[in-house]
Design a binder for these strands. Structure first.
Lengths: 148, 148
DNA sequence: GAAGACTACATGCAGATGCATCTAATGCAA
DNA sequence: TTGCATTAGATGCATCTGCATGTAGTCTTC
């Protein structure tokens, strides 16, 4: 693995001409892929955050959490922070705070779990379900517009 | 491939009930695409930021700017903020501050442009070129590891 | 069952971001 | 020329983020 990387780097060097940014095909592809990803992500995320905030008072992260809660645990829509964390692209601390914000807005509530008293269940409230339902179309529309 | 996805989505449809997330096939694909994008972006960006910062004292945004400067304007490697902004996924204000940080570290300098005195040229210093050259392999390696 | 390692979540803190706004320069119209 | 709209870039501000750490509960080993 390490060997492969080094060999690849050597090959790329061989194809480089000094002033003109040439890099090996593989490496260029990689960078292009990354830039493309970065561009798509950024414009979509920003649009999402702006629209959701403006129309529904939700940040993109907040919606992401609501969305996962709606989708998971079909009947009770409760998840341990732990589980939620695996489904959402947020650090543990960021998730903790997003949930705190959602709770402050009454969209979610925390419940201790009896079996492991370190754990916290996060559960949607009715208001949370409603807000999510209201915001989902906006979310999908923005995705459609940006990822077409 | 496409077919497989659609079949999977169809199955989801069959299991869906009215209150619980029913939406069209296309829409599901869209959301899946977005989640995938989000996941790739996040892990890659975080790894990039961590590694570059630790090994070369550069944030991911700083590297991005250095990278674009290295690549553009092949001979003098100077770009107007404006142009730089189009190539980089940062708001105008964020870019302004990244450049300020880079300048404070001596990796870049700002120059007024005579023809339009509102404009600012950003130009790499030798130190900037060196730092970029040193960091680029780390950058490519992280990309390779995360976007494989 | 006591001590120490480990896990789940919260929080202090420093830093980065975007939005709105400010300043200065340019361009256009009368 | 004067005046107004526009553009380039900087900056104040609120907010969000991750890292490091703190606190409380659990598991393991003796």
């Amino acid at each position: 693995m390490q060997m492969h990387l080094m060999q690849a780097d050597l090959m790329q060097w061989n194809f480089m001409t000094v002033g003109t940014m040439m890099r090996g095909v593989t490496e260029n592809e990689l960078v292009d892929t990354w830039r493309d990803l970065l561009g798509r992500y950024h414009s979509t995320w920003c649009a999402l955050d702006r629209e959701l905030r403006e129309s529904h008072g939700l940040g993109a992260s907040e919606f992401e959490v609501l969305d996962q809660l709606t989708e998971s645990c079909c009947d009770k829509q409760a998840l341990r922070m732990q589980e939620l964390g695996k489904k959402v692209q947020l650090s543990q601390s960021a998730l903790s705070r997003v949930v705190a914000r959602l709770e402050a807005e009454g969209l979610v509530f925390r419940a201790l779990c009896a079996d492991d008293r370190r754990g916290i269940y996060v559960e949607l409230t009715d208001a949370g379900r409603e807000r999510h339902a209201a915001a989902a179309p906006t979310h999908r529309t923005v995705l459609a517009a940006n990822l077409a």
